[in-house]
């Protein structure tokens, strides 16, 4: 293993928790999320030479995951499959029940957003990426991203209000 490959792999290993989180925001199940991460890591290793050292590896990985996920959604819709949804169990967490319920409500509202809006929210709100990088991952202008984010948030607020659990301010 060359030293550039080693450092690439090391950086990739360090990113795995975030890739899994991003995957969880995009997909409905832990299994789908981890499958997606696996595919992205395989693809990344296969085209490692295309990555420019010094640029953000997280952006690059998110873009690969986004593309893989869109491919998968298309393949599933051709097969008329509904993606698995195992989120009722939620990720294991030692949260107080109220927080847990709110997190569950938010994740279920996220799943009801359109793919474009969910991608924008996943990158900016979940992953905390700056607009510029998020827009690059999605290959859209920043203006498109900001309006997508605003619409997505409006929709989330509506969905959470229907659920009777709007996020409480001041926490």
């Amino acid at each position: 293993m060359t030293s550039t490959e080693q450092s690439f792999r090391a950086e990739l290993v360090g990113l795995l928790p975030r890739l899994r989180r991003f995957g969880r925001a995009l997909t409905r199940s832990r299994e789908d999320a981890d499958d997606l991460v696996q595919i992205a890591v395989e693809r990344a290793l296969g085209r490692r030479i295309q990555w420019e050292p010094g640029t953000r590896l997280d952006s690059w990985m998110f873009r690969i995951m986004r593309n893989a996920w869109i491919d998968e959604i298309r393949a599933r819709s051709r097969r008329a499959e509904v993606p698995a949804n195992d989120d009722e169990g939620g990720p294991p967490q030692a949260a107080v029940p109220d927080t847990h319920l709110e997190a569950l409500a938010i994740r279920s509202a996220m799943q009801r957003l359109g793919e474009d809006q969910r991608l924008a929210v996943s990158l900016v709100l979940v992953e905390g990426m700056p607009y510029k990088e998020a827009a690059e991952v999605l290959e859209i202008p920043i203006g498109t991203l900001t309006s997508r984010l605003a619409r997505a948030r409006e929709r989330l607020q509506e969905l959470l209000a229907e659920d009777g659990r709007p996020p409480e301010p001041g926490r």
Partner: peptide, 20 residues
């Protein structure tokens, strides 16, 4: 404040994945 709370809540709802 609503926007701030929403951002924080969305972020927090996926944060536990990092500890898995």
């Amino acid at each position: 404040e609503r926007q701030r709370a929403l951002r924080a809540a969305v972020h927090a709802s996926y944060a536990p994945v990092l500890d898995e």
